[in-house]
Structures are given as structure tokens and as C-alpha cells.
Amino acid sequence: MSGAMREQSPFRRVVADFCANKVAVAGLVTLVIIVALAVFASLIAPQNPYDLAQLDIMDGRQPPGATSMDGLVFWLGTDDQGRDMLSGILYGLRISLIVGAGSAAVAGIVGSSLGLAAAYAGGRIEAAIMRLVDLQLSFPAILVALMILAFIGKGVGNVMLALVIVEWASYARTARAAALSERAREYIEAAEGLALPRSRVVFGHLLPNCLPPLIVIGTIQVARAIALEATLSFLGLGVPITEPSLGLLIANGYQYMLSGKYWISFYPGIALLITIVSINLVGDQLRDVLNPRLQR
């Protein structure tokens, strides 16, 4: 509001506003750590959980803190295959993040393009796209994803495809709404008045100004995608057993939970929880910071 504020670049202002909330900063730091752990999983993990040669069935279902035949300490216990849970979680985290972020990115590109196209083309194209969006959003994501996977079968690629189909509509709706309000502004009229090519108006002028709401939606959609993927994998319809994500790890431990071997499900669940909560914290704060309506 004051002169000093106005001189800051928009980016600096966003960073400053974001840091005003300590909880959100903690969420961001946690998220960075989680991503780092996932990226460097193969360097950090005590064991390669996919390498069957490293596994010993004799080490199966060891409680946290137990030691393997080879003297390796299982800090978080082992699953029924004798797999170190810590290593399994680090590798599972990687799959969860790839599926979640990957599908959110693809859905974001497809959805935003369609949304922008709808806003810019108007008329019948807009009506058709938005009808499809309404139809898509009137059914819960889990149901749609379940049905798609029921027909096309499981697998990492198929799960991502299902997630993209489930998610694109939110982006399309947001992009269209943002574009419509941006379009009414003078600079678009000016760009059109200069007879710039349409694609340049859309991608050079419209898109950059619609980005803030899309970033917010994107963050929240990544968290949703990770949770949905975990749920689908838990139900046995997601990723295959050879590439277990966090959801599948939890599902594997489910049958042992009743006999008190809680750790097989519990720790992957905690990892999933921390990931989703930290993404949501960052997303919530981004929404507050980037939403011009809430700025005082």
C-alpha cells in the first residue's frame, strides 16, 4: 500500500508475504527435504528394495530397530518379504511423487490449454468444453479413476492417465475463469488492437497473467493426485507390486495389522501424511498470497 511496497517486484512481494506465515515456511522446508529424499533415494537408502538378491525372507516382519542376518539395522522394521521399510518408503516416495507431480503437470497443461481455448474462442467451442468440465466435475474423482482403471487395467502409466483424466477439468475451469477476467482488461484489448497473432496474445499475454490461480490449483492437485494414487494402489488398482508406491506399501501391511505388526502400514502412512500435509500447507499459503481479492 505504501510507496516502499510498490517498488518491490511482484516476485519479491510474494516471497515476503509467503514467509510471513511460519507454518507455511515449515511446510515448504519439509517438502524440499521430502523431494530431496525421494530424488536421492538410491544413495540414501540402506538397501535397494527392488533388488531381490539383497532381500532375505528370513528377515521378514522384523520390528523396528531389529538387525538383519548381515548386521543391517532395520530402523523402521521390515515387511513380509524381508524388505527394509525405510528403504521401501524412500523408493515408494519417489514413485508417489513422480505419479502425483507428473499427472498434475500433464493435467495442468492439457486443462489450462483447453480452458484458455474456451475463454478465447467462446461460442460453441467454449460451450462444449465447459459442458465436459461440468460433467467431469459432477462425479467424484475416485469413482472416475476407479472405472477407468477397471477397464484399462493397472500400471504406472495407466494410473497417471486416469489421474490426468480426473484432474484436467479443475485446471480448465480455473484457467477459463482467470482468462475471462483478464481478457476484460485493457492490455489485452491493446494487444488485440495491435493485431498481434492470436497465439501470441493467448500465450504471451493471457497465460502469464492467469498463472497465479493455476499455480495454486496445481499445488493442491499434486497433493490430491498423491492421495488418490495411494488410495487406488491400496485398493489394488494402482501401481504394480514391482514398483510399490506408499499406498501399496500400506496395503501390504494391512493384513498384518490385526496381528499387531503395525509398522508395515504405519510408517509408509506417516510418510504419505507428511508429504500431503506439507504440500497442502504450501498451497494454502500460496492461495492467500496470490489471491488478489484477499490482499488488503
Partner: peptide, 13 residues
């Protein structure tokens, strides 16, 4: 945020 299947497991636990 919590995936409901995991909450269900925790409730059982």
C-alpha cells in the same frame, strides 16, 4: 489431507 484408507487402518489399529 489424510487419505481416508489410512485413517481407517489407524482407527482399526
Amino acid at each position: 489431507s489424510l487419505p481416508s484408507f489410512w485413517v481407517g487402518l489407524m482407527l482399526i489399529m
